[in-house]
C-alpha cells in the first residue's frame, strides 16, 4: 500500500524525486564527510600542486596541493547548514514580521513596511558585503548578514498573504466566536499563509547557498583555510588553467541549488490541503 503510493508519487513528480535524492545524498555526504573524504581537506602538499583529477585525487588538487574532492565533501558541512539557517531565520523572522504588519495594519503596518522598503532599497549583496566587513569574517556572521538582507522579502510576501486571509469569512467566524486577536493571527491566519512561504523558502535554499558561496567567493564569508565552496571557486578562478579547482565546487553549488528548487516546487502541491487526503 505504502509502496504503491510512493511509486505513484515518483511517477507524478520525477523532478522532485531527483531533487530529494540529491539533497539526501548531499546531507549524507555532509554527515559522513570524514568517512567519504580521501584526504584531510586542510592538508597542504606543495610538491603535489594543481594536479588534474586522477585515481588518487578524484577531483585533482588545488594551488596548495590540497585534495579538491575532500574539500568539496567537507564543504557540504559548511554550505548546507549555512543555507538552512539563513532560510529558517529569514523565514521565521520575516514571516512573523510581515504577518504582524498585515494583520494589525494601519500605522504599525506603515512603519514596519517602510523599514522593509529601506532594507530592500540596498542591493542585497552589496549590503551583505558591507555588513560582513563590519562584523568580521566568520561563518555565523556570514549567515547573520545574509539573514539581515533577506528577511524583508519574506515579510513582504507574508504581509500580502495575510492581507487576503484576514478578510476571509473564517477569520470573521473566529472573531465572532470570541477568539483573541493574537490567537487568530497565530492559529488561523498564519497557518493559512504558510504554504506559499514554505515553497518560497525551499526554493530559496538554493539561492541562500549560492549567496553564501558568493560571499565566500568575494572573500567575505568564512576565513581562508575552510573548505567553503564559493571560496574554492574563487581560488580556482585565479588559475584558470587548472579548471578542476573551480568546476567541482561550482558544480556542487549548482546541483544543490537546483535540487532544492525542485523540492520547492513539489512542496507547494503537497502543502495544499485540498490535494492532501485525496485518494
Amino acid at each position: 500500500m505504502v509502496k504503491k503510493k510512493t511509486i505513484r508519487f515518483i511517477k507524478k513528480n520525477p523532478l522532485a524525486t531527483i531533487g530529494a535524492l540529491v539533497c539526501v545524498l548531499f546531507l549524507l555526504v555532509a554527515v559522513f564527510a570524514p568517512l567519504i573524504a580521501t584526504h584531510d581537506p586542510l592538508e597542504q602538499n606543495f610538491s603535489n600542486r594543481n594536479r588534474p583529477p586522477s585515481a588518487v585525487h578524484y577531483f585533482g588538487t588545488d594551488n596548495f596541493g590540497r585534495d579538491v574532492f575532500s574539500r568539496v565533501v567537507f564543504g557540504a558541512r559548511i554550505s548546507l547548514p549555512a543555507g538552512f539557517l539563513v532560510v529558517i531565520f529569514s523565514c521565521v523572522f520575516g514571516g512573523i514580521y510581515g504577518a504582524v504588519a498585515g494583520y494589525f495594519g494601519k500605522t504599525l503596518d506603515e512603519v514596519l513596511m517602510r523599514i522593509v522598503d529601506i532594507v530592500m532599497s540596498f542591493p542585497s549583496l552589496v549590503l551583505a558585503m558591507a555588513l560582513a566587513a563590519v562584523f568580521g569574517k566568520t561563518m555565523s556572521n556570514a549567515i547573520l548578514v545574509i539573514v539581515l538582507v533577506w528577511w524583508p522579502k519574506y515579510a513582504r510576501m507574508m504581509r500580502g498573504l495575510v492581507l487576503t486571509v484576514r478578510e476571509t469569512e473564517y477569520v470573521a467566524a473566529a472573531v465572532a466566536l470570541g477568539e483573541k486577536k493574537s490567537r487568530i493571527l497565530f492559529s488561523t491566519v498564519i497557518p493559512n499563509c504558510v504554504a506559499p512561504l514554505l515553497v518560497m523558502a525551499s526554493a530559496d535554499l538554493g539561492a541562500a547557498i549560492l549567496m553564501f558561496s558568493g560571499l565566500g567567493f568575494l572573500g567575505m564569508g568564512t576565513a581562508p583555510p575552510a573548505p567553503e565552496w564559493g571560496a574554492m571557486v574563487s581560488d580556482g578562478a585565479k588559475v584558470l588553467n587548472y579548471w578542476w579547482i573551480s568546476v567541482f565546487p561550482g558544480a556542487a553549488i549548482f546541483i544543490v541549488s537546483i535540487a532544492f528548487n525542485f523540492i520547492g516546487d513539489a512542496l507547494r502541491d503537497l502543502l495544499d490541503p485540498k490535494l492532501r487526503n485525496l485518494e
Binding site: 467566524a173 465572532a176 493559512n192
Partner: peptide, 23 residues
C-alpha cells in the same frame, strides 16, 4: 467583555466554502 458576550450571539455565514478554516 465583548468576547465573553459572543457566546450568546452567533452567526451563520452566507458562504459555506469561505467560512470554515480549510486547515
Amino acid at each position: 467583555a465583548m468576547r465573553k458576550l459572543r457566546q450568546e450571539m452567533q452567526i451563520v455565514f452566507q458562504d459555506p466554502y469561505g467560512c470554515l478554516d480549510p486547515r
